[in-house]
Design a binder for these strands. Sequence first.
DNA 1: ATGGTGAGTTTGGATTTCCTACTCACCAGT
DNA 2: ACTGGTGAGTAGGAAATCCAAACTCACCAT
Lengths: 169, 169
Amino acid sequence: MSWKIKPSSTLNRMAATKDPRPCSIADALALVGEKYSLLVLREVCLGNGRFDQLVRNIGAPRDVLATRLRRLVDAGILTKRAYSERPQRFEYRPTPAGLELEPVLMTLKEWGDRHLRKGADLPMVVEHSCGNELVPQVTCQACGEPVHHDDLTAHPQAPGWTVTGPAAA
Amino acid sequence: MSWKIKPSSTLNRMAATKDPRPCSIADALALVGEKYSLLVLREVCLGNGRFDQLVRNIGAPRDVLATRLRRLVDAGILTKRAYSERPQRFEYRPTPAGLELEPVLMTLKEWGDRHLRKGADLPMVVEHSCGNELVPQVTCQACGEPVHHDDLTAHPQAPGWTVTGPAAA
DNA sequence: ATGGTGAGTTTGGATTTCCTACTCACCAGT
DNA sequence: ACTGGTGAGTAGGAAATCCAAACTCACCAT
């Protein structure tokens, strides 16, 4: 049996620790930020929604994949539907909420293409219906202008937020 | 000592396994997809780049955070610089490459705001220099139009890709 | 009867995370 | 000079996760 008395210096540190911030980015990542989850979404958005396709294309262990799929279905990001009874066979497809995560995939792909492959030898190109290769760009819905870091000002609305930098409120 | 003879059904399964696809999304996630990495980027983009600020605001264990920071610095996404010698104190800031990950954060925040909080009681609002609240929208750089799933066609360029769905090449 | 496929589950070991504590260097107050 | 506090980590062990391979179960094909 130990005394479990904390030295005061430790007590002070404990008093200073706080819960992490309320944040939609953190909440979103709690759902889709686990390993392989966004790659699952990539595949189902491409129409490759069967279990063994996912295993092959993503390279995830089967049990981990099964866990991720359950979680994404529970979160309303994917649906599981049978494409064949007798033999029962299933396919995962994105829900509308899942499809709305595509912008995240597109911006990630853009960044990877530019910074990790320097624009050459891209493993895959996406074509937009306008006929050009898609280069996704984030714009402000209100004014239509492309968004740059220096154009942003953060306004914390909930307790727990402090902003010290150039984007401070 | 065991014989290590595989049943033939297993042999066949092994022959079918392949490496995962070459993919910029997967490569990007290998760098910034680990737990907490994107939250570190959030904080650093807000100007909160000191170790203990990061610990408090993110809620990450200190050792994990130290590991992530090293990795992000190595990847050229953050820089570490002293803001005080004697006592040595450091601050992490985003590099240009790090700043270019902001679109990923913005699209994630958008999704979380809409789907996880239904638009009400947002913990934080970002203002664009045009004076409006920022609602990020992904557009096609070539034609300027907002991008929708059905407007996209995937064109695999590297081996290992198969696309069976509506976005098939 | 044998083998093959799809969609997982089971098993057992390797790897990561997490938590608490500890260090080290410095500064501030008494 | 001593006590306490801060910043930026490191150390060590328990808990959770991951991973690869094997196994299951239901069905179909030869």
